[in-house]
């Protein structure tokens, strides 16, 4: 009897899990495996091209300082964007979870997830219209202020950061919101009744308990930003060359898929190493 139940339970689990894992296998594992294979080819196996297996594409990363420089530049960009997103997103999530109730919360939530409803390319070009000289921002400010201001942020690192923070901010708000909402209000009331000030409650109760959500949001932002190429290319101009744009160039501009694939896997490896190295620290922070 118990064996039959166990079998029924197992088949239920398999039927519920298999669509997702089948999809992941087809959509992620197979293309990634193909790219991994490409990264070890001497040339694109296209038409009559002769090719062989090689590690030269990985060696290329170490033969010049260009790629390492760009990788470091991309990691710094990832840290800056994640930092700004946390600074802006966490207070917003706190207010949504603990201060505002009812319809107002729903309306504000709608504003938070609005970026997800528009195409990313449209969002970036919208920023281009706002940030460029004689753009919407400059015209708006000059219409309000009694003196003339020159606001031309387009084609600069701040423009890239603004565009990326806007794109990824909802991740940190949503994950932090869920963590903050799970905190029992009685804990805060108890701390207050025992004389704890606002800062003490924030540092000793709210932040530690919401840290898993905050960190999950930070990781969700950091990983794609390190490999981003569209925002840097469109908003960054001369300073918009990053590791992601160089990878894109290999696929789109110079038809060197093997090198592009190798650089992508190096990026993946570096991001995984960063996450692995930081995980003990993150675990300690959560306990």
């Amino acid at each position: 009897m118990s064996t039959t139940l166990a079998n029924q339970q197992r088949s239920k689990i398999i039927s519920l899990l298999s669509p997702a894992y089948l999809w992941l296998t087809v959509a992620i594992f197979l293309p990634l495996s193909a790219m991994l294979y490409f990264s070890f080819l001497s040339d694109v196996p296209f038409g009559q091209t002769e090719w062989h297996l090689t590690t030269e594409n990985y060696q290329a990363f170490f033969q010049t300082t260009t790629y390492a420089k760009l990788l470091w530049k991309s990691i710094k960009l990832g840290l800056i964007v994640t930092g700004f997103a946390v600074l802006v997103g966490f207070p917003c999530a706190y207010v949504l979870a603990k201060v505002i109730q009812g319809r107002a919360r729903e309306a504000l939530f709608l504003l938070v997830i609005l970026p997800f409803w528009s195409n990313s390319l449209v969002r970036i070009f919208s920023w281009a219209i706002v940030l460029r000289g004689n753009g919407v921002l400059e015209i708006g400010l000059n219409a309000i202020l009694p003196f003339e201001v020159d606001v031309n942020l387009m084609f600069s690192t701040p423009a890239i950061v603004i565009g990326l923070v806007h794109s990824y901010l909802p991740y940190v708000i949503l994950t932090s919101y869920l963590a903050l909402q799970a905190i029992d209000d009685n804990l805060i009331d108890a701390a207050r009744s025992m004389g704890a000030g606002k800062h003490t409650i924030l540092w000793r109760i709210i932040l530690p308990l919401s840290l898993p959500g905050l960190l999950a949001g930070a990781v969700l932002i950091f990983v794609p930003v390190v490999g981003s190429f569209m925002e840097p290319r469109i908003l960054g101009g001369r300073v918009g060359t990053y590791f992601g744009t160089v990878i894109e160039d290999q696929f789109v501009a110079v038809f060197n898929w093997p090198l592009g694939a190798a650089l992508s896997f190096i990026l993946l490896a570096v991001v995984l190493v960063i996450l692995a190295l930081s995980s003990p620290i993150l675990r300690r922070a959560q306990t």
């Binding site: 010049t64 260009t66 420089k69 760009l70 001369r238 300073v239 060359t241 160089v246 160039d249 110079v254």
Partner: peptide, 12 residues
């Protein structure tokens, strides 16, 4: 040429 152009762009 590509290596030179990438080096120059990376230095910005």
């Amino acid at each position: 040429y590509l290596a030179l152009w990438q080096e120059l762009k990376a230095a910005q």
